[in-house]
Design a protein around this nucleic acid. Structure first.
Length: 564
RNA sequence: GCGCCCGUAGUUCAAUGGAUAGAAUAGGGGCCUUCUAAGCCCUAGACGCAGGUUCGACUCCUGCCGGGCGCACCA
């Protein structure tokens, strides 16, 4: 905001001095080194416009009148660098922060977006792969909402299909009536692994599984009862995890509910000649769109993922007043979604669909696989990480009661795990190394929490006597403090970019950078022991940092602490 | 075979076509009588290869090499 104002103000003059055409777009940059300035104007582009010749530029730059927001101007290596006036910046920032408008935007046109994410399968374990999707999704919801959009968070559970049939088959055959005990996730996961192994070992078994699936779709009563009961174990487990994670859904959809309507839609598409029958199955021939053949329904009439997704898409737009449907799903489904969206379009649902792809999580040993048990379950890793956090906390705070340590270590563990999932861009594969997940140093969630803890500590010691700062007085602002001011002012740009690119990593990286700069400040100057005027100003500065940091963490859905 | 994505310090990641390619971690060396050392400072270390487009390429294009993923009854 404040930066936008400064830029706008400068642009007016720049256009006039250089005689730039009206449609010219100034591409502001940030100098790589703060010592070179705070805003950079590349003159390569300007030099291309007919009226201006290279050598004249420097002369013309000297004609620019310095507004109050700018301290000085330098030309260097093809750039005009503007040094912002720190007092001006401090004042503007204070206004922006007081209005709580930093990082928020009220775009006039509010879109309603339904964001579907997380989508775990029942009867399988929630693992670190789901963790990425869930945390990414929640963070996107927050970021988009801050951007001014209305977002409906939807989860779509895979509660039917081949994997469920397999599980039920194994359970009925070898574990009939068994109860899961305290750790439902482990129980479900164990049976699934056993089911995968046993069903593949014997062709007889494969047939039995297919039979179970058929019976289930036909609504066999006794089977349905078992399905309902075991499905609930799974869903309860997921909800428990979402509660721990602070991930919230406005709506839950279930694949089981989309089967029948999906089949009807496929039938309709067949009648209308949009879908064809090939080898007994319902397909869309999308070869002319370079999207190959898309399978809608199996030859034996059983529903596929696509069958159900068609129904869900129609339902979403009919029942909820949404403008766009976004799907945050693993990149491996890119082709699938392109096929699905094209099919929907051909079926007459001409709406905006978006597949937000993210790279999957794998382990140092290889790809995650629920069937082979090569995976890191959420509960297991969460326990490990929070255990270590508890140990570290106890070491540092001998007097803390057990409950306080528990609360802190939980927050630290979650910060570590979530930040790990958010800090790199969506399109980068994460190789989840449990050993590295146990690190709380450097580019990690706990580092951000620690920064906050230090700020809080200063504030506590400062006591109540924080005077209001008088901005009319010129403050003595150190270079490192000015760097902090500039960083804070950039926050709005970052959140806007994060929303535009649907990329929470931008916020994560920014916050880390802010904290690094704070740490440098923290070691370079003292807040509490400063001269009265500086003391007041620095207290105000750290208050601002705290506000941005807390808000940024909220966008990432990371809970923070007062002390750690 | 066809298609999509990715190759940057030992490792994990950054870099709207722009300035001296930034961090973290691991390595070496320092800093706790000063606001929390989960920290800070110093040091060493990288663009897969070859062309092309451009005033300018880690970024765009082509080819090669290396890795991942997807391509009809799984989700």
């Amino acid at each position: 905001m404040i930066l936008d104002q400064i830029k706008k103000n400068l642009e007016k003059q720049i256009f006039a001095v250089f005689g730039l055409p009206k449609n010219f777009e100034i591409k502001w940059q940030t100098p790589p080194n703060p010592a070179w300035g705070d805003l950079a104007l590349p003159i390569f582009e300007i030099a291309k416009t007919p009226k201006v010749q290279g050598d004249e530029i420097v002369k013309k730059v000297q004609k620019l009148k310095l507004p109050a927001s700018v301290e000085k101007i330098e030309t260097k290596a093809g750039y005009v660098n503007f040094f912002l006036e720190p007092n001006f910046l401090a004042r503007g920032l204070a206004k922006e922060l007081a209005a709580k408008s930093l990082g928020k935007k009220n775009s006039g046109k509010k879109k309603t977006i339904m964001l579907e994410f997380s989508q775990p399968n029942t009867h399988k374990e929630f693992h670190v792969g789901h963790l990425r999707g869930s945390v990414l999704g929640q963070s996107l919801v927050n970021i988009l909402q801050a951007h001014g959009d209305k977002v409906i968070a939807a989860n779509y559970l895979g509660d039917v299909g081949a994997h469920v049939a397999k599980w039920l088959w194994c359970y009925k055959k070898w574990h009939d009536g068994e109860e899961p005990g305290a750790d439902k996730a482990k129980f479900l996961s164990k049976i699934y692994q056993e089911a995968a192994k046993k069903s593949e070992a014997n062709p007889e078994h494969k047939k039995e599984v297919a039979q179970i699936q058929k019976k289930l779709e036909q609504g066999d009563r006794t089977l349905l009862r078992v399905w309902k009961k075991t499905r609930k174990w799974s869903i309860d487990e997921f909800k428990k995890i979402y509660k721990i994670l602070g991930v919230n859904f406005d709506i839950y959809f279930y694949e089981s509910e989309e089967e029948a309507p999906g089949k009807k839609i496929v039938e309709k598409l067949r009648r209308r000649g949009i879908a064809k029958t090939s080898r007994g199955a319902a397909v869309m021939d999308l070869e002319k769109y370079n999207l190959e053949i898309f399978l809608l329904q199996k030859a034996d009439g059983a529903a596929l993922y696509a069958t159900k997704d068609l129904a869900l898409a129609f339902k979403k737009f009919k029942k909820y007043k949404i403008d766009e449907s976004w799907h945050l799903v693993d990149v491996r489904q890119t082709l699938y979604f392109r096929q699905l969206f094209k099919t929907l379009r051909l079926a007459g649902l001409k709406k905006i669909f978006k597949h937000l792809a993210y790279e999957f999580v794998s382990l140092p040993e290889g790809v995650i696989s629920s069937r082979s048990g090569r995976m890191v379950g959420f509960n297991e890793i969460f326990e490990k990480v929070s255990g270590l956090a508890a140990q570290e906390t106890a070491k540092r705070h001998k007097g803390w009661p057990k409950k306080k340590i528990e609360r802190a270590s939980r927050a630290i563990a979650l910060a570590a795990m979530k930040f790990d999932m958010l800090k790199q861009s969506r399109e980068k594969q994460i190789i989840f190394d449990p050993k590295q997940a146990l690190s709380f140093e450097g580019f990690t969630g706990p580092y951000l929490l620690y920064t906050l803890a230090r700020i809080n500590s200063i504030q506590r010691r400062a006591g109540r006597g924080i005077e209001k700062i008088k901005h009319r007085d010129k403050l003595k602002i150190e270079p490192i403090e000015k760097q902090l001011l500039v960083k804070l002012a950039q926050f709005s740009q970052i959140t806007a970019a994060a929303a535009r690119q649907a990329e929470p990593a931008l916020v994560a990286q920014y916050l880390f950078d802010l904290c690094k700069t704070f740490a440098e400040f923290y070691h370079a100057v003292n807040v509490l022991k400063a001269e009265p005027a500086e003391r007041v100003w620095r207290l105000e500065l750290i208050k601002n940092i705290k506000q941005v940091l807390e808000y940024g963490l909220e966008l990432l859905s990371i809970e923070y602490l007062d002390e750690m």
